[in-house]
Amino acid sequence: MSNNRTIPAPDNDLSRRAMLRGVALAATAIASGQLSLEAAQHVHQQVKEEKKNAGTYKLKLFNEREYKTLGRLAELIVPADEVSGSAREAGAPEFTDLLCSQNRELADIYTGGLFWLDAQMEDRHGVSFLDATEGQQTAMLDLLVEAEKQEGERRAQGLTFEDIQRYQEFESYGIYRPSELSPGIRFFDWVRRMTVDAFYTSEIGVKDIGYKGNTATSKFEVPQEIIDYALKRSPFASS
């Protein structure tokens, strides 16, 4: 087990420096009153052209096993499919490692959550999450998602956590029983939110979701076929 393992970096700070160069250029242009759309486009162009992935990533907090478990979770949460790669490929484990290394509170959520997950897997299947079969892994996640849904429904009925505490005497009715999976629900929600963030903010994710903006253009236009598409499916189709 080593904390010095190197792996490809999801990104590096070259980009920021290149951006600042572009920005400085644009600012000079403003000062000299020569600013044009070309100058604006230049800024965007510089951002686009920067090189990525030149460096390598060193684990900052997690051990190798934790890192691999996070990688597996990332793959399960946002898997590769015919459109794009997985959240692991988009740098989710590195993103998590970095933020956890900067924040003890977050680090505890993750190390605690990973221990909880492994203990549950040992109890249920006699094997750690990482070493379990895909079927065992997804069975665990399905349990958490289902338990989360039930919690959500209680909330939708207007029952807050405090309500649930207050009415603990009604536990025998079964309605308000807090789930033994509660710590896992919380942890999985953390992993899922941060995995999704890492994925959709990556170049892979931006392409997957189809965001077309962050460019400079001299004219804003919506293609007519797009307007027609929306109108045709709306209640205003005939009007």
């Binding site: 999801p10 965007h44 993103f95 933020l99 990556s202």
Partner: peptide
């Protein structure tokens, strides 16, 4: 014009402060 992936914390800020 900066993309979130150009920043190592993606916009979550140091230590994931936004969370």
């Amino acid at each position: 014009h900066q993309w979130p992936h150009e920043v190592d914390h993606r916009g979550a800020e140091e230590g994931g402060a936004v969370y």
